[in-house]
Write a protein that binds this DNA or RNA. Structure first.
Lengths: 229, 229
DNA sequence: AACTATTGTGACAGTAACATGACAGTCGCT
DNA sequence: AGCGACTGTCATGTTACTGTCACAATAGTT
């Protein structure tokens, strides 16, 4: 759940392959679709974390797809980046009005595209971006899967790692147990809410040697918060 | 790594950019040309180590370029890989007769292309693949295909060798089994993910006498990591 | 202070993830 | 052909993580 799923809607097979390869190279998971129909099918199977949408598609155009996704509450919040050959300023506006988060014109450098993907993910789903996060003395690096507090290494299990990662990318805000289950465990799992307490404890225990456990705070009646100070 | 220079002759800018990015990702240097004229100009400036040649080009075709390169003693030995949309067997023969080392039809997977580039480079210019890598006490020399840890020789099978080579050039970062299969096994072969475990074990076993096996670390739930300490 | 709602904690069994050993198939070599 | 080295897969151990509970501790209310 740490890696972002990116739905790639593109009809030209060569470009699709190349983009998929680049996405994978950057540590994300690429899900491919050639047209609107298969795109919807993929979205129905599992919500992606970001959608790369070709402007020109056979049948339903990219703009129409974007509009439909924005109309559905289930898909409203999924970031969309449009790919297009047009450089016309009017089209750009049209694309953004249709609900796209960003917009990139062909020919584009893959490096630029990847930068935009990261930027959008950082804005919309910070825990999906794989950048190193630092809060106070704590440092968490998703790519190396390492955590350190005040220089000393911290050993975490997978769940505690994701939990801390989520907290560090959503500082100073209270989350209910249900919200944490959705965000850290995934929305379709059924687990007892009190299980969160246990993992909070395990996280605190791991952070204790560095005195960083004070940052994981209980908000009675509401949930938990990760906070500086 | 003595990076290989790869001349990329392709008129479609989008595909050129994407290929150039992939080439760079793999640690090679991409030199771009849109047509025969600029290709010759680049070759005159400095001989590339490999040429990626689009079959269909405006003006002089890829086949003609390949013939001319083969006729010149200065360029006769440069490996050539042809890119083409045609799947016709006759064209394939024509392409190879014109002197190409390999031939790949669009749409192709970048992974396959990169595998072929590596294969051709390995065949035609083995010294180009790489130079000796050193991490902690371990020393790996691709050219001599030798590995030593703390002075003492280590015997590795081909797969373990490539695995260690990949790890040593990508230290500290965690790779999933799928990523390792992509990077180390290369071709789009279907291999069970658990097979990675076995080769990890074989690698560890080989490194054990030098106590270097501690560097191959398991990251539960994520994959494996090669790390100092 | 007493009571209640909420959260902390230690223990535990089930399980998912990983390690290991064995084996059969393949390939190149002489 | 016969041999040895290497590979991929499976079956079986082994480990470490997970979720749940029972009960202890704490905060909030009256």
């Amino acid at each position: 759940m740490t890696t972002a799923d990116i739905l790639l809607v593109e009809d030209e097979p060569a470009i699709q392959e190349l983009l998929a390869f680049n996405i994978a190279q950057c540590g994300f998971r690429a899900i491919k679709a050639q047209d609107a129909t298969s795109a919807y099918a993929q979205i129905n199977r599992a919500l992606p974390d970001l959608i790369l949408l070709d402007w020109m598609l056979p049948g339903t155009s990219g703009v129409e797809i974007a509009r439909k996704l924005r109309a559905d509450s289930r898909t409203r919040d999924i970031p969309i980046i449009m790919l297009t050959a047009r450089t016309d300023e009017r089209d750009k506006i049209l694309g953004l009005e249709s609900g796209a988060d960003d917009y990139i014109t062909k020919p584009f450098s893959p490096r630029e595209l990847m930068a935009r993907i990261r930027a959008v993910l950082r804005r919309r789903a910070p825990q999906m971006s794989d950048e190193t996060v630092r809060v106070e003395g704590i440092e968490l690096s998703p790519t190396t899967h390492r955590v350190s507090a005040n220089g000393q290494n911290i050993d975490l299990g997978p769940t505690e790692f994701r939990l801390l990662h989520f907290f560090m990318t959503h500082v100073e805000r209270v989350y209910s147990r249900a919200q944490l289950l959705d965000q850290v465990w995934g929305d379709h799992v059924f687990v007892e809410e009190r299980t969160v307490d246990v993992h909070i404890r395990r996280l605190r225990q791991a952070l204790e040697p560095s005195a960083a456990d004070k940052m994981v705070q209980t908000v009675r009646g509401s949930g938990y918060r990760f906070s500086r100070t």
